[in-house]
C-alpha cells in the first residue's frame, strides 16, 4: 500500500508540471501581460513601458519567465487582476467560499437522493418504483445542465415565486443574523437542486447495477439462510460492497463540479469562481483566468489522487504494480 501511495504521488509530479506548462503557454498566448495590469493609462510613454518591461523581466528568455512564474505561484502570488487592481488571490478568496458551499451542497443533496433510490430500485427490480427511477435517470442523464437550470429558474423563481433567481444572499441582510442565514439558504436552493438532480443519474445507475449483481451472490444467500433479516442483508452485506466505490467517486466528481459551476453560477448570477471566470474572460482579465484554470486543474488532480487512494484501499486489484 505504501508503495502504491508513493508511486501514485510520483505520477502527480509530471502531471502538475505539464499542467503548469500548458497554462503558462495559454497565459502567454493571451493578449496583455503582467504590465498591462499595472499601467494606469494605456498611452504611457513607450520608453517608460520598455523600462518597466525590463524591470518585470518580460523580456527575459521564456524558460526564465516560466521559472519565475511558477516560483511565484508556489508562494501564493498569482499576479494582479487587470480590471480589479487587487491581487488575484484576494479576488479568488472572496469567491472561493461561495463555490465551495455550492459544490458541497450539490454533492450532499445528489447523494442523499441517489443512494436511497439507487438501492431501492436495485432491490425491487421491475417494480413500479424501479420503473419510475429508471425513467427519471434516463431523463436526467439526457438533459443538459444549462437547459435544466433555466427551466428550474423559470418554474420556481418566476412562475411560482418560491426562490430568488440570482445572487448568493440578499444584499440588505446583515451578516450573523438569522435572516442572513435564511437568505443565504434560499439563494442556494435552486443552484444546488439544478446541479444535484442531474448529477444523481450516474450514481443511481451504478448503485442499481451493483445491488442487482451482488444480491445473487453466494454470500448473500448464506446470510439469508442464517436467518439474517432482509433489511440487514441489504444494510450490512450488500451495501458494504457498493458504498466505498461510491465514496471514492467523490474525488472524480470534482472535475464535473468545476464544469457545472460555470453554467450554474452564470445562470443564477451566483458570485463564485465559475462566474468570476466568465466575467474575467469577458473583461479580458487574463491573469485571473489563468489563475482559475490552474486552481481548477490542481483541484481536479488532487481529486483523482484522493479517489485512486480510496479505491485502491478498498480494492487491491486496482493498485498499480
Amino acid at each position: 500500500m505504501l508503495k502504491f501511495l508513493l508511486r501514485r504521488i510520483l505520477i502527480m509530479i509530471p502531471q502538475l508540471f505539464i499542467l503548469s506548462v500548458l497554462i503558462f503557454t495559454l497565459a502567454k498566448a493571451m493578449p496583455g501581460d503582467a504590465l498591462s495590469g499595472q499601467l494606469e493609462n494605456a498611452h504611457a510613454d513607450p520608453k517608460v513601458i520598455a523600462e518597466q518591461r525590463q524591470k518585470l523581466g518580460l523580456d527575459d528568455p521564456i524558460q526564465v519567465q516560466y521559472i519565475r512564474w511558477i516560483n511565484h505561484a508556489i508562494h501564493g502570488d498569482l499576479g494582479m487582476s487587470y480590471t480589479h487592481k487587487i491581487p488575484v488571490t484576494d479576488l479568488i478568496g472572496e469567491r472561493l467560499w461561495n463555490t465551495l458551499l455550492l459544490a458541497a451542497a450539490t454533492l450532499i443533496v445528489s447523494y442523499a437522493i441517489a443512494i436511497p433510490f439507487g438501492v431501492a430500485s436495485g432491490r425491487w427490480t421491475n417494480s413500479w418504483l424501479d420503473k419510475w427511477v429508471t425513467c427519471y435517470t434516463y431523463f436526467t442523464y439526457a438533459t443538459p445542465l444549462f437547459i435544466f437550470a433555466i427551466l428550474m429558474m423559470f418554474l420556481f423563481s418566476f412562475e411560482l415565486n418560491l426562490f430568488p433567481s440570482g445572487g448568493s444572499v440578499d444584499p440588505q441582510a446583515v451578516p450573523g443574523t438569522l435572516n442572513y442565514f435564511i437568505s443565504k439558504f434560499t439563494h442556494l436552493v435552486l443552484p444546488t437542486l439544478s446541479g444535484a438532480l442531474l448529477a444523481t443519474s450516474t450514481t443511481i445507475q451504478f448503485l442499481r447495477n451493483e445491488v442487482i449483481d451482488t444480491k445473487i451472490q453466494d454470500f448473500v444467500a448464506t446470510a439469508r439462510s442464517k436467518g439474517v433479516p432482509e433489511s440487514k442483508v441489504y444494510s450490512r452485506h450488500i451495501l458494504r460492497n457498493s458504498f466505498l466505490p461510491i465514496a471514492a467517486f467523490l474525488g472524480y466528481d470534482i472535475t464535473g463540479l468545476i464544469g457545472g459551476s460555470v453554467f450554474v453560477e452564470s445562470i443564477y448570477s451566483y458570485p463564485g469562481l465559475g462566474q468570476l471566470f466568465l466575467d474575467s474572460i469577458q473583461q479580458r482579465d487574463f491573469t485571473v483566468v489563468s489563475a482559475l484554470v490552474m486552481i481548477s486543474g490542481f483541484a481536479a488532480l488532487l481529486g483523482t489522487l484522493l479517489s485512486d487512494i480510496i479505491l485502491s484501499a478498498v480494492d487491491p486489484r486496482i493498485r498499480i504494480d
Binding site: T255, I258, L278, I281, S296, G297
Partner: peptide, 15 residues
C-alpha cells in the same frame, strides 16, 4: 481527462 475541459475550451475560444 483531468483537465478542466470546459474552461480550457473557453480560453481557446477567446484567445
Amino acid at each position: 481527462l483531468v483537465l478542466p475541459f470546459l474552461m480550457i475550451v473557453i480560453v481557446c475560444a477567446t484567445i
